[in-house]
Design a protein around this nucleic acid. Structure first.
Lengths: 249, 249
DNA sequence: TCTTTATTGATTATTTTTGATCGAAATTAA
DNA sequence: TTAATTTCGATCAAAAATAATCAATAAAGA
């Protein structure tokens, strides 16, 4: 049992139980206490654990589960059919914006083989398209670890320097009163993308319709079309305001 | 049983069990221990495994095997010790630049638990630090799928809007004539990072010293310090130009 | 065929790792 | 507060792994 293997075991246990003791470590790995101590010290030097008297503790107590992926996992079928429809609106040569919504993310799989340019602030979108035919452009700025996307002033300014034919965006809610978001940062990005594109598509599954959350950040006129799987009756009030409705097949 | 066949067997076993021991290898393949050792050393040079005392381990058992990491895997031990040294130069509260070099990438593991801000144009760095204590800032612009990093005019402008205490950068070569790169895009980014930081560290393993590749893009004075595992004698001409030399422990 | 080159193994010296001991420092108990 | 206990780090010696050197063998080319 060499140092590298022990190091792994130590970090494994720390990840599970959060702490470790010298004596227990020495018995478990069948090494002397001084060696156990040396191991912990070395790992502490690299900042991989926090050395305590008689043992060690985990440094980073909580690892964020990428709740984005979880969120993205909800209602996949509906989202996929929305995105399939959205993909028909995209032609080779297009330059498009994609924001960091979970529905928009599902669009990636349908455009991988298109010769287009995608401008996005979403890290998952970048990963998904990184080795595809799509040419990528990343919005820079502060990275929001919770949303896995770039936000902030610099990001906003950065978007204003680009111009795209189409934007594919998500929101947290939509009603005849307009568009709703859960955060101001996200709302600012969505607005910027919409303003800088010639035609803006809103991708929203049935659950988003008539849902009015925290922030009413824009009028319906910000977008040109809505792609949705919702019942056409529920969309009447939106349609009346001159927004095109694209229903999934 | 020639080297090629042994190499295959070694890598096979590593893929299955994740580790291998010299003694076991020698018995199993009916070769002497020194030959087994030589095999492992050679494979480690190519970055195909991580040499440990008494055996070897799979390259990055914890990390995802992206193409990039494989490239980064060359000379891991040297790069890791360089980065361990580099990490000692970083304190909580620091704002630092990190570019898209493969050595710089290895720095991530040593700074995951530091409370710092990292500004980078490298996607692997973002990926690695995305769920750490580090606060991230992404340089925006055109995404270069080959280097998995952001480059171009916008990226360059974006960097100029930031200011950091320290920059940790890589190059393709360094000699008394200055710094060398394999592409103009990369050179521009490196230069920008260096100019916008108060103190610039160059991380370069021994192979980079006195290597003069395609583009001589900057004078040595662009950087303040070099962190390297190279022999001190080879660094004399660099030291004479007033660059600080930090040798690995 | 002979020569050259590369590979392998044996031997030895060096380096690294490990464990034991002991005094110092920190923690706990009185 | 002091005393007892535990943990710690420094030092040193033993053990293991390694690198360096050289000779033997195998392979390749002239």
């Amino acid at each position: 049992m060499n140092f590298q293997k022990r190091k792994q075991k130590i970090l494994d246990q720390l990840n599970v139980s959060g702490e470790i003791e010298i004596k227990q470590l020495a018995t478990e790995l069948d090494i002397s206490e001084i060696t156990a101590r040396r191991d912990l010290n070395q790992l502490a030097l690299d900042g991989l654990l926090y050395r305590t008297r008689g043992g060690a503790m985990k440094v980073n107590p909580l690892d964020k589960p990428t709740d984005f992926v979880n969120k993205a996992a909800q209602n996949i079928e509906a989202k996929d059919s929305i995105c399939r429809k959205a993909a028909t609106q995209i032609n080779d040569g297009d330059i498009i914006f994609m924001d960091c919504g979970s529905t928009v993310f599902r669009l990636c799989q349908f455009i991988k083989n298109k010769k287009i340019k995608v401008i996005t602030n979403s890290l998952p979108v970048v990963y998904e398209l990184q080795s595809s035919l799509v040419s990528l452009n990343i919005i820079g700025g502060e990275f929001d670890a919770e949303r896995l996307a770039v936000h902030g002033t610099i990001a906003h300014e950065h978007i204003l320097r680009y111009r795209a034919a189409k934007a594919f965006l998500g929101v947290d809610g939509i009603s005849k009163k307009g568009l709703f978001a859960n955060s101001e940062k996200e709302a600012a990005i969505t607005t910027a993308f919409a303003q800088q594109s010639n035609y803006t598509y809103l991708l929203c599954d049935a659950g988003k319709i008539d849902r009015e959350t925290y922030l009413n950040f824009a009028d319906l006129s910000l977008v040109n079309a809505i792609i949705t799987d919702a019942d056409v009756n529920k969309l009447q009030s939106i349609k009346e305001q001159g927004i095109a409705i694209l229903l999934v097949d």
